[in-house]
């Protein structure tokens, strides 16, 4: 098993506390022709699990210009069965090749048996589920030889079986496994609206000391069977103002943290994405200035 030189949590390189965007094939050439001033890029791991061709050609070159975050969407950590070893092998190979500054995955399941469902499906927040997720994260971190970040989910339903709050569930995972938290502020907002929670209270109850990256994205608005708003984590529009506000609120507690603009549908022109990254970076600079005024007594 290939063990990375930077296997220990302390020595694992970190993303800079700057803004970045998700790397899209549409932008490969333009980025290389005139590399924008951003802090890092992120890829979806599974898109690069191909043998060769343009994806690797461009990623190698772009990776040499920017710190890299590898974000998995297919490991199915929340599944009832253990993570697929063949998929862990593919991840290990990708991580070994590109030596990313961060690896993250979702608190969700996407595979059942041999079937891949291509969506991030919800898990109940109960002891049985907690034990299982922790075991799976232990295995992932052991196999990949790194400390992973776990992303909080956007969900549309809750489970009768849940006995813990989402924040308690995630805090306990972080405590037991030592993994970090990828705080998806859009997901916090989407889930807060969908389940009638106070988004700022959710942020405050998250294990903020473990946050090493933030995701920001756009959502779509639908309604539930009784006409109440149901927000969809669509990644198909600019970050909403209400999410920018929640992000600024989170930064008050966190100080500057690497922040990704996620856009997976209706991909805009590169300058539009860069402008959104700059909007995040303005808030990151403000957070750096006000970090000295961090509220006392908070475990951040």
């Amino acid at each position: 098993m290939p063990v990375l030189a930077n296997a220990s949590p302390e020595s694992f390189p970190r993303l800079p506390s700057r803004g970045g965007f998700g790397l899209k094939p549409e932008h490969f050439r333009e980025i290389l022709a005139a590399p924008p001033d951003i802090g890092f890029v992120e890829i979806h791991a599974e898109n690069y699990m191909v043998a060769g061709g343009p994806f690797h050609h461009y990623l190698e070159r772009i990776r040499s210009l920017y710190p890299l975050s590898i974000h998995g969407v297919g490991l199915s950590i929340g599944a009832e069965t253990a993570p697929d070893e063949a998929h862990l092998d593919r991840l290990a190979a990708l991580i070994s090749r590109y030596q990313p500054e961060s690896f993250s995955e979702h608190l969700a399941w996407s595979s059942h048996g041999t079937t891949f469902l291509n969506d991030l499906l919800p898990v109940p927040y109960c002891t049985e589920s907690l034990n299982r997720v922790c075991n799976h994260i232990d295995r992932v971190q052991e196999r990949l030889g790194l400390r992973m970040l776990l992303e909080n989910p956007a969900t549309y339903v809750e489970f009768d079986a849940s006995t813990l709050s989402e924040t308690d569930f995630i805090s306990e995972i972080v405590r037991r496994t030592g993994c970090g938290l990828l705080l998806d502020v859009n997901n916090v907002y989407v889930s807060a609206v969908n389940h009638h929670r106070d988004a700022r209270s959710v942020i405050r109850a998250m294990p903020l000391a473990a946050v090493h990256q933030i995701h920001l994205a756009g959502f779509a608005t639908d309604s539930d069977a009784d006409g109440y708003p149901l927000l969809i984590d669509s990644h198909g529009s600019p970050v909403a103002q209400v999410v920018w506000d929640l992000y600024a609120f989170a930064l008050d507690y966190l100080g500057p943290v690497a922040t990704l603009i996620e856009r997976d549908n209706d991909i805009p022109a590169l300058p539009v994405l860069v402008a959104e990254v700059q909007q995040a970076e303005a808030l990151l600079r403000a957070a750096a200035v006000s970090k000295a005024r961090l509220p006392q007594g908070l475990a951040v």
Partner: peptide
């Protein structure tokens, strides 16, 4: 086993 905050 699914639930919603407003019983919808």
């Amino acid at each position: 086993g699914l639930m919603t905050w407003n019983g919808s």
